[in-house]
């Protein structure tokens, strides 16, 4: 639904742009295409790698790992899986709900949800195209650390 909203919003802007200046609109379209084409090889490569990783680490495998491992090891594994995968929220949240229902620990599940959203190890090559090494590594490292902290606090509040 938000995607539709974004299309409508973009098309309205594009129309306004066209009414105001044809040449500038043409330039905007060219720029849009060029910035897309520039990053496309990297996008495709990462998409394929994500496909391979998710086919090995399927939701079933993740639930098996997190369901059977408790304690510190489970939390660390959740952090590793979450950091190294690019799973969209509409997959992680139902997965988290199902795992919780089956008795998985709250903290590892929140670590998984949090790291899979905030940490992007696989997307580092894309981030490096626009940022520097230090900012990329520091940002992702901090996201991992804070994911654990958030999980512990949420575990205390909700547990």
């Amino acid at each position: 639904m938000f995607t539709v909203g974004m299309y409508v919003f973009t098309l309205i802007l594009l129309l306004l742009s066209f009414l105001k200046s044809r040449s500038k609109t043409k330039e905007a379209l060219k720029k849009a295409w060029r910035s897309f084409e520039n990053i496309l090889p990297l996008f495709l490569a990462i998409l394929l790698i994500v496909g391979i990783i998710l086919s090995i680490l399927s939701p079933e495998v993740i639930s098996k790992i997190l369901g059977s491992q408790s304690g510190v090891l489970g939390i660390i594994l959740a952090g590793i899986i979450g950091s190294c995968t690019v799973i969209p929220g509409f997959v992680t949240f139902p997965l988290a709900a199902a795992l919780l229902k089956n008795g998985a620990g709250l903290i590892p599940i929140i670590v998984l949800v949090s790291t899979s959203a905030m940490v992007g190890i696989l997307t580092i090559p894309i981030e490096l195209q626009y940022f520097c090494k230090k900012s990329t590594y520091v940002r992702n490292f901090l996201a991992i650390i804070f994911s654990f902290i958030i999980a512990f606090i949420m575990g205390v509040i909700l547990g």
Partner: peptide, 22 residues
């Protein structure tokens, strides 16, 4: 994933272009 990406890319990159120009 490719389908999802191709679906979301057009508005995002058009917005980048519009922002850049205007």
């Amino acid at each position: 994933n490719l389908k999802e990406m191709l679906c979301i890319m057009p508005p995002v990159f058009l917005l980048i272009g519009i922002l850049d120009v205007w």
